[in-house]
Nucleic acid binder design. Structure first.
Lengths: 337, 337
DNA sequence: AGTGGCCGTGACAACGTTGTCACAATCATT
DNA sequence: AATGATTGTGACAACGTTGTCACGGCCACT
């Protein structure tokens, strides 16, 4: 492999001067600089990151510990956002994925391997919004938690603003004139669920509606991130036979919305025509395939990834947990019937 | 940061002996070895990958160039599989994602950055099965293409066996006794489409059915991997009013199956009851949420990732393009009505 | 007892880079 | 014209590790 000394020989100068050119040092004669640049091109020289790392004592690498991020389809955007921002700051990403069945020692080993790479910082990303127990060693270097929170460490964390998203989604339906809105709530074992219910209620209160008068029905049970079962059929049967059936349904997640579309189709009802539907998450395979197009609150995965990396690199992450707003994807399904 | 010399001082030996212990050299007195191990633990020593890299002239890092892999939800499993296998072989993964809007120079820069890291090998993964033009420089080091193929370079490549999957899916329906099967074909601009049609026809021929007697209708148009539109409603209208309507539908992808479920629901028909349905891809958000459960041919993303990494590390990748079989996910939807 | 081989250990150089210091040449200042 | 500052350049050490070589001590042979 061609080194800085080979370049120096070719450009007939000292290897130190070559180093200066590479690092953009101004105090180099333009003519010399040109000779050196030419030699670099001619020889196809590439700086050796290992040597640089040793001298400068920093790697310009950020570790990305992904807690099953690639398992759940849509959260991969966290990774994408982080990578975008890392690249914009001239950093590289070293990825280590931890699978569901992995124990605590596996995670510790992953951490250890990244430390051996002398990563300048560490992002720990979860597949879905939940609590995690982190290796305490993570506090040894600049670290940030994405899409999760930890009560055992004081690391800064970024999570989606579930409450606000629910509030905004509900406002959307209220603005269309709906006064009878049901919430098909997601898995009660998910941390997002109570927050989304709160947001739902907050919006109702704003509009002067008594929250307890609006039905909240659990439409998904099972293990979050694992095997889940949907109860949309029975929930809708219950709702539609009530004294005052809802004119709008807030679905706790896109999978529930998908089920709802099917139930409505079987009943000859059209979303956005006979019944307004708004959902959460914006899981592309679903939201991109449903017709009429689904109005959904998109999880800010990309944005969380970007922000997390930015905060990490700027070194000014606020301690504690920061909530990132969802973005609203307007489809046809929330329209008034 | 604590170095090998600090450990040596603490263990009262030479730093060379410490190096031997770290690298598992057998010719070290057990007592000394124990003293050194103890010192390593006590001081929290971690080998410096940069220094090792420089001496040994290899990084034990594999570059992963992802051509929008994290954009399309389900293909992230390629990354996951590659990481699993890399870890099993004591390698780390350096990730670089190229976004859709990025030009050729962006890709070349990504390659250059990975080369500066002195990666020992390179995986180039595509978000969906398609042709790519690769930077020719990739032939400078062991590289492998995953989920795509290149006609401009001779790099080994792994792709899903679309033809076989379609053949197997069709056999499944034939085994249930169906003799009138329609294929709702995916995007004609996708490379998978003609291969899946061929597999469909191969299975029909095996069963002694004239392929041209079975309808193949395009049910998805637009830009593959981008904005797509589905034509399932009209396709089904056409099929169900035909002289001999099909008793089974082969859906070219899960998104089409999702649409089909909706169309059938509106017509009061049940998949797996009134009409058999088999699909492709196993996009979890869809296949995991549909009821009755969808029988679908799962894209071998995880397996391709694992195999690609294994072939790369073993250094015996067969030249040319290798097809990897799908796996069959049996649900209820393919049952006989 | 003398010879050869093995075992455990250490001295030293080298990998490719950057930081520190120094030096000569040029320029601006007194 | 002498002095000081600046500019361009190079010599050298150092980062943390591993490969090469060599050395002393012990054992098993002749």
């Amino acid at each position: 492999m061609v080194s800085i000394k080979d370049v120096a020989r070719h450009a007939e100068t000292s290897f130190k001067t070559v180093s200066r050119v590479i690092n953009g040092d101004q105090r180099v004669n333009p003519a010399t600089r040109e000779r050196v640049s030419e030699a670099i091109r001619a020889l196809g020289y590439r700086p050796h990151s290992g040597a640089r790392m040793m001298r400068s004592n920093q790697s310009r690498i950020i570790g990305f510990l992904s807690d099953r991020v690639t398992t759940q389809p849509h959260s991969g955007d966290i990774l994408r956002g982080a990578q975008q921002m890392a690249d914009a700051h001239g950093r590289l990403l070293m990825l280590f994925n931890i699978d569901a069945d992995a124990g605590d020692d596996h995670r510790r080993r992953a951490f250890e391997l990244l430390m051996e790479q002398r990563v300048d910082g560490l992002l720990y990303a979860c597949d879905y919004h939940r609590e995690v127990t982190l290796p305490l060693e993570m506090q040894q270097l600049p670290s940030l938690l994405v899409n999760g929170f930890s009560t055992t460490t004081a690391l800064p964390a970024l999570v989606p603003d579930e409450r606000l998203a629910a509030q905004q989604a509900t406002r959307l339906l209220l603005a269309e004139g709906h006064r009878h809105i049901a919430f098909l709530a997601p898995n009660p074992r998910s941390v997002a669920t109570p927050l989304r219910v709160t947001g739902f209620h907050d919006a109702l209160l704003e509009a002067g509606i008594e929250p307890s008068s609006m039905p909240v029905i659990t439409a998904c049970v099972g293990t979050p991130g694992g095997e889940e079962e949907y109860l949309v059929e029975s929930a809708m049967a219950q709702l539609m036979t009530a004294e005052t059936p809802p004119t709008a349904i807030l679905c706790g997640q896109d999978r529930i919305a998908l089920q709802l579309y099917l139930v409505l189709a079987r009943r000859g009802l059209g979303p956005g025509r006979d019944l307004a539907v708004v959902s959460f998450d914006d899981q592309q395979p679903i939201s991109g395939a449903l017709t009429p197009s689904l109005t959904t609150m998109a999880l800010p995965h990309l944005e969380m990834g970007r922000q997390a990396m930015k905060l990490l690199l700027d070194g000014n992450a606020p301690s504690g947990t920061t909530s990132i707003p969802f973005s609203t994807v307007l489809g046809q399904s929330h329209r008034h019937g």
